[in-house]
Design a protein around this nucleic acid. Sequence first.
DNA 1: ATACAACTTGGAGTACACTCCAAGTCAAGC
DNA 2: GCTTGACTTGGAGTGTACTCCAAGTTGTAT
Lengths: 139, 139
Amino acid sequence: MRDILETVSSIQQAAEFTGLSEDTIRYYEKIGLLPYADRKANGHRTYSKHQLEGMVFLTRLKATGMTLEEMKRYRKLSEQGTVSIPQRISILKEHKKRVQSEISRSLETQRIIDYKIEHYNEVMLNPDLNNTACDSIEE
Amino acid sequence: MRDILETVSSIQQAAEFTGLSEDTIRYYEKIGLLPYADRKANGHRTYSKHQLEGMVFLTRLKATGMTLEEMKRYRKLSEQGTVSIPQRISILKEHKKRVQSEISRSLETQRIIDYKIEHYNEVMLNPDLNNTACDSIEE
DNA sequence: ATACAACTTGGAGTACACTCCAAGTCAAGC
DNA sequence: GCTTGACTTGGAGTGTACTCCAAGTTGTAT
């Protein structure tokens, strides 16, 4: 079981696992967002399970709006070892807060969408309403 | 009160109200995301409260990940009047669904961030743990 | 009259995050 | 020995969404 977890992956497998494209993975390495990957004798990149999971974590940060530049800062801190843990925690806490306000805005927007759909349904039943009853939501 | 609601705004006031920059508002008009705005005698754009609220709604769609192209489609439908309401509803419902899955992903990511912070705190208390106890979350 | 501020236009430039390409290497199968 | 496929590199190109700029116009204040 340990063996399976420590199996080494090609860039193709890494792409499959992370959902990133091979080009994107190379690009991330090029800009220093991912560390220079180990190469096999023939020069091909190899990734450990651990590294793949690190990449997946990065994709989560990205999916929640963190920029590549911020992710790069975070990763550089990781390279410095345990001394940088407080800074890493503060980056994560800060990001979590941003995600929270994004969630709030999304929920609010969902509410507004519902309200608008409701309004549309009313207009379809009674076209006279059209523009009058709804100052805060435009057509 | 009606008077206040129907007061006409300059592009500067529109920018303030919507949070968009003046350049962005002009850009949106240029690409057809906003309708050609009324001009005063001197050529300056004017916006009604109703239009400002329409813009704010667009910024909400944008903030939740809708592209300018999709927003444009939506607005073009609005121009066609009530016949396009079913299509507009379906765009909004579709978008709401996307927002929902984005929220789910965000919540999941928050959970993972918490887990990681917890792990960091443990490592700081007991540096021996460092790499061993946490296969699914990288350093 | 003149300065200033708030606009106008068309178009060029920028930032971010990829995405694609050409030319080359290497290992395996026929 | 030759083809095929999976990679490598450096660098160029793309899409989205702005953002900035220069040159011109208009309205108000001094």
